[in-house]
């Protein structure tokens, strides 16, 4: 079987005020998998997603999605920004925000139609927020707000989903329900690209990893990426960290299979 490529990044360099934040990043990612982007704070993970989405103009390099320039496949790509990047006091309901997932360049001046409403309601149901449908977003917990963003991405009906830290500030129950949504998406052949912080859980969540620290440190399967060498290259050689790393490597060498099944 020929492996389809979801995202290709070529010689990507991005700077803020002349300071490089991403340096000569070059990789291509498989399709149909849950892919984790990991790296320390300030390593450029958010910047990488923004550059892929064209929110940020790279200083050099280019990105292709499904072998095409992004603008030709926009409607196949969904983006979930970091939750803290918006003001949740904005006067909108859960339904209003999820409806934004149906906005297209072509329908921006139009009103909503029935098919859109149906898709939105299904998406809200998928993340378990139906009873909060008309609730104002300021009156939701952090985990519920995160699920609103995921529902909005689901409403986009995309083939690839880029999510910036969807697991931050959510409790264990929400975390596992988000995870099962992601796994269901993978079953449908979708590609999910997730920025993740918690090294403890990477081996349970992801099929494929990108390890970043301004440069691309490593990418590949868990076994390829989660080596002591790679991790200390990315995170520096802190002692406590290295101890954890050993744990993680052990976990990857003896993956706990049941975890994939019943969640």
């Amino acid at each position: 079987m020929k492996k389809e490529v979801s995202v290709e990044v070529h010689n990507l360099t991005a700077t803020y005020g002349g300071r490089p934040v991403l340096w000569d990043i070059d990789f291509s990612l498989p399709a149909g998998q849950i892919i984790g982007i990991i790296g320390p704070n300030g390593s450029g993970k958010t910047t990488l997603l923004k550059a892929i989405m064209g929110i940020l103009e790279p200083s050099s390099g280019y990105v292709k999605v499904f072998d095409k320039p992004l603008d030709e496949v926009r409607e196949r790509v969904a983006y979930v920004p970091q939750r803290e990047s918006v003001d949740w006091d904005f006067p909108a309901s859960v339904f209003d925000v999820v409806m934004m997932g149906r906005y297209r360049k072509s329908n921006l001046l139009k009103r909503t139609n029935k098919a859109d409403v149906e898709i939105v309601e299904k998406s809200i149901e998928k993340v378990g927020l139906t009873e909060f449908k008309n609730r104002q977003i300021s009156q939701l917990s952090g985990g519920q707000q995160q699920r609103v963003f995921i529902a909005r991405a689901l409403a986009q009906k995309a083939d690839i989903y880029l999510m910036d830290e969807p697991f931050v500030g959510v409790d264990a129950a929400t975390e596992s329900s988000i995870l099962s949504i992601l796994q269901e998406m993978r079953k449908e052949g979708k590609t999910v690209l997730i920025i993740h912080h918690d090294l403890q859980t990477v081996s349970e969540y992801f099929d494929y990893l990108v390890l970043l620290n301004t440069r691309l440190v490593a990418k590949g399967t868990l076994q390829e990426v989660l080596t002591k060498e790679n991790l200390s290259n990315a995170y520096g050689g802190q002692l406590t960290l290295l101890a954890k790393v050993v744990d993680i490597i052990k976990k990857t060498e003896f993956p706990i299979r049941e975890k994939d099944v019943d969640l």
Binding site: D71, Y79, P81, V86, A92
Partner: peptide
């Protein structure tokens, strides 16, 4: 819709190619 996106989540609007 455009003004709403602009006020609530400009990055999301950009990600839609607007």
């Amino acid at each position: 819709r455009g003004f709403k996106l602009l006020a609530f989540n400009e990055d999301f609007g950009l990600s839609l190619g607007m």
